[in-house]
Computed example of a mutant assay.
Amino acid sequence: MNRRPSPLDNDQCRSCSSFSDYIKATKKKKDAENGITGAVTGDSGNSNNSGYTRRRSDCPLDKDELGNKSWGLLHTMAANYPVQPSQAQKTDMKTFFNVFAKFYPCHYCAEDLREELKIDPPKVDSQEALSQWLCRLHNKVNVKIGKEVFDCSKVNERWRDGWLDGSCDY
């Protein structure tokens, strides 16, 4: 199968970089090929003088989109995990996280997750235990990437029940 070479083939995969990182790397490579040096500028979300246009909505997920959607899936799974899981469900959930960490498309993220799972394995004794464990894990990642931490006391409100102000009600 032929595919168009990516400017990141020798640096990072698409799943390991954000769209803005991708645009900067592409521009940097193009500028280097044209003998241009200096800082990369421009808004990657809009058309700019360099000829780059807004990213299509049906492109492969970048690191940021993949992370956001993955966390959404994981938190929703934890929110719907049984209050009193069977032994088989506990085993399956632990297995799921270990397999997820093996196949996650961003290899840097996957390696980090595998290390975290060794230090603090999934807490699968109940819905509350799993949701709280996942929230703490997510917050560890948020700290590493410079994002705000989430108040884990609100995890079920966020991912299962909806906000108390009714803003999620239909």
Rank of each mutant, 00 (worst) to 15 (best):
D62W: 03
H75G: 06
S15G: 09
C168A: 09
S18M: 02
K90P: 06
T41R: 00
K69T: 05
P122M: 11
R56A: 11
P122L: 10
D161W: 09
D169R: 10
R114Y: 06
W163I: 07
A39S: 01
Q84A: 10
K27C: 07
K94C: 10
A129W: 10
M93T: 14
P5N: 00
A32W: 03
K102L: 11
C109F: 09
K123M: 12
N34P: 00
G166M: 06
F96H: 04
P105S: 04
D165V: 03
K118W: 08
W71N: 14
E157T: 03
S57Q: 08
N68C: 15
A129S: 14
S6K: 02
S153Y: 01
C16S: 10
F150R: 04
D151A: 01
L74A: 12
T37I: 00
S126N: 12
V124W: 07
G166N: 04
V149S: 10
N98P: 04
K144Q: 02
W159P: 02
V99M: 05
R54A: 15
D161G: 07
S18F: 04
L66M: 07
R54K: 07
D125K: 13
T76Q: 14
A101I: 10
V40A: 00
D58H: 03
L66G: 07
D169V: 14
A39D: 02
L61E: 14
L73K: 04
S86A: 07
K24E: 12
M1Y: 01
F19P: 11
K118M: 13
A88K: 04
K144S: 04
D112F: 00
Q127A: 11
L117A: 15
P7H: 04
N139S: 06
N46F: 09
S70P: 07
A88S: 12
K102D: 15
K147E: 14
L73A: 14
Y170Q: 11
K24L: 09
W133Y: 06
T95R: 06
R4I: 13
T37Y: 00
A25K: 01
F100D: 05
T26H: 03
L8N: 10
K94V: 14
E128V: 13
K140F: 08
